[in-house]
């Protein structure tokens, strides 16, 4: 009986039946693209305002999916809304060959509607600056409020920003707490999302920024070097402060001539961990040591600075633990 009725409906109007079936199919197939793509616009004013020295930028579009959402919820007391999932763009801002930093725009829900904040992120993943691309609260155009808001987040790392919100996701603020909370949450989400989704791209441009800051040359190439004798690492690198599984080696060349060696490795000493890039000359001089995250103190930064310019090709000439670690890494890079 039911089948006959359905057939009759289909005969009566096949077009409507097609749309009904399609509708029911799509209802359960959640997607994430409301407006037509012609409405997409780059945050051009924000990029030019936040990076006045930039010469151009590069867009990198990637999917922020449910997996990203779950991962981010492990770092934050809140996570992304489902309508924040979908394809998003990270802009790498360049000055000629040198990456200056990143731009990412995020929407955030406030008591008075959606706002969109464009974030400028330094290469060490601290907040450089921010820009209200869209905020219908007139407060967002108040210069005093803007200055206060920027002061609150500028230069802050993820962990420092996390201390600005309580477990109920509220920011500690008396002046316009709703908007301040939304902005602080947006900053945290931005760092968490960009690190998780665009992590490889961020690392690539960090490497590029580092080598262009050291070598005064055009057309530098940074090529990954596969270390074939990986298993030997366990026997050779016994130094506990370097996590040997994390070592990556890159050859730096200019016009086919090798000009340096870049090594990235995780470090766990001096009370803080995280990744470091070590840049060596081909003959073993330490040219630069840069942490992925900001230095925790000037004292630690000074300790590492003392190793710069030292030739660590021969382990016996090393006088500090840092130089010895550099020597081990340089040896690995020669395999």
């Amino acid at each position: 009986m039911m089948n006959t009725e359905i057939k009759n409906i289909c005969k009566a109007n096949r077009t409507h039946c097609f749309y009904l079936i399609t509708f029911l199919f799509l209802w359960g197939y959640s997607i994430h693209s409301q407006a037509a793509y012609c409405s997409l616009r780059d945050p051009v004013v924000a990029i030019n305002t936040l990076y006045p020295d930039a010469s151009h930028h590069l867009s990198i579009t990637k999917e922020v999916n449910r997996h990203s959402r779950n991962q981010i919820s492990e770092r934050l007391p809140f996570t992304l809304l489902f309508n924040e999932l979908g394809k998003h763009t990270l802009y790498v801002v360049m000055e000629d060959n040198t990456p200056l930093g990143f731009i990412h725009a995020r929407s955030e829900l406030t008591g008075s509607g959606l706002i969109e904040v464009v974030w400028a992120i330094n290469l060490d993943m601290t907040i450089k600056d921010s820009y209200f691309q869209r905020c219908r609260d007139p407060k967002s155009r108040d210069p005093i409020f803007i200055a206060d808001m920027k002061k609150r987040v500028q230069g802050k790392s993820f962990n420092q920003l996390l201390k600005l919100v309580d477990k109920h996701q509220n920011a500690f603020s008396n002046d316009n707490p709703d908007l301040i909370s939304a902005v602080t949450k947006s900053a945290l989400k931005t760092i968490a999302v960009t690190e998780f989704v665009w992590g490889e791209d961020i690392d690539k441009f960090k490497r590029k920024a580092l080598v262009y800051s050291i070598f005064d040359k055009e057309n530098l190439e940074i090529n990954y070097k596969d270390i074939a004798k990986k298993e030997e690492l366990n026997n050779n690198i016994v130094f506990s402060m370097l996590l040997e599984d994390t070592i990556e080696v890159y050859d730096v060349s200019s016009n086919k001539n090798k000009v340096g060696i870049l090594v990235h490795a995780e470090w766990s000493q001096y009370g803080f961990g995280g990744g470091f890039h070590w840049l060596f000359s081909p003959d073993g001089e330490i040219l630069n040591i840069t942490p992925d995250k900001p230095w925790p103190s000037h004292e630690i930064a000074n300790e590492f600075d003392k190793a710069l310019g030292k030739n660590i090709k021969n382990e016996e000439h090393c006088t500090t633990a840092i130089e010895l670690a550099g020597s081990k890494l340089f040896r690995v890079s020669q395999w």
């Binding site: 012609c38 997409l40 590069l58 790498v92 360049m94 060959n97």
Partner: peptide, 18 residues
């Protein structure tokens, strides 16, 4: 069919295509 992309060259956006 709604298609959107950026044409890039090396580390630079060149154009937006819709």
């Amino acid at each position: 069919f709604d298609y959107y992309t950026k044409l890039t060259y090396q580390d630079r956006d060149i154009a937006t295509i819709i």
